Lab assay of single mutants.
Amino acid sequence: VKVFRALYTFEPRTPDELYFEEGDIIYITDMSDTNWWKGTSKGRTGLIPSNYVAEQ
């Protein structure tokens, strides 16, 4: 598990995607895809765009 911080707010387009706000901490559990990672924030899990976060 790696810890990342959201650089921007992300509004999901599908139920599989995770909503998060700029500054949120996201725990990444799967980075197997280059563009979409699986992450958890505020008790919810979903896909996030990798270019919206920076490693802490």
Rank of each mutant, 00 (worst) to 15 (best):
G23E: 03
Y19I: 03
R13L: 10
K2H: 11
T9N: 11
P49H: 06
F20A: 05
A54S: 13
Y52C: 12
T40Y: 15
S50V: 10
L18S: 00
D16G: 11
S50E: 04
N51M: 11
M31A: 07
R13D: 09
T40N: 11
G46N: 01
E17H: 12
T40E: 13
R5E: 08
Y52D: 03
E22C: 12
P15T: 10
S50I: 06
M31H: 05
I28P: 00
E21P: 00
E22R: 13
F20T: 02
E55G: 06
D33R: 06
T9H: 08
L47K: 10
K38Y: 15
T45Q: 10
I48M: 03
E22L: 10
I26W: 01
A54M: 13
E11K: 13
R5T: 13
G46M: 02
G23K: 02
F10V: 07
Y27S: 06
W36S: 02
V1Q: 11
V3A: 11
V3S: 07
S32M: 08
I26P: 00
A54T: 15
F10H: 13
T45I: 10
Y27N: 05
W36D: 01
D33N: 11
F20V: 11
E17S: 05
K2A: 08
K38W: 15
S50G: 04
F20H: 00
Y19M: 08
P49N: 07
R13E: 10
S41Q: 05
Y8A: 12
P15H: 09
D16T: 09
M31I: 06
S32K: 08
A6L: 04
P15V: 10
Q56K: 09
Y52L: 11
F10R: 11
Y8C: 15
E55Y: 10
S32V: 10
P12L: 04
E11W: 15
S41M: 11
I26H: 00
F20G: 00
Y8G: 07
S32H: 09
V53A: 03
Y27I: 13
R13F: 07
N35M: 14
E11L: 15
E55F: 12
Q56G: 11
G46L: 01
I28L: 04
W37A: 01
D16K: 11
V1S: 13
R44A: 08
G46Q: 00
D30M: 06
N51F: 09
P49M: 06
E11R: 11
I25T: 10
T29R: 05
R5S: 04
M31Q: 13
D16E: 14
Y8H: 11
R44P: 02
I48T: 02
P15R: 09
E17K: 08
D24H: 02
Y52K: 05
G43F: 04
P15W: 07
Y8K: 13
R13C: 13
P15I: 09
G39C: 01
T9A: 08
D24S: 05
T14D: 10
F4E: 01
N51K: 11
I28T: 01
V1A: 13
T14G: 13
R5Q: 11
W37Q: 00
Y27A: 06
T45V: 12
T14L: 09
A54E: 14
G39M: 01
V1H: 13
G43A: 04
L7F: 03
N51A: 13
I28V: 14
E21W: 04
D16W: 13
Y52N: 03
S50M: 07
P12W: 06
Y8R: 14
D33G: 08
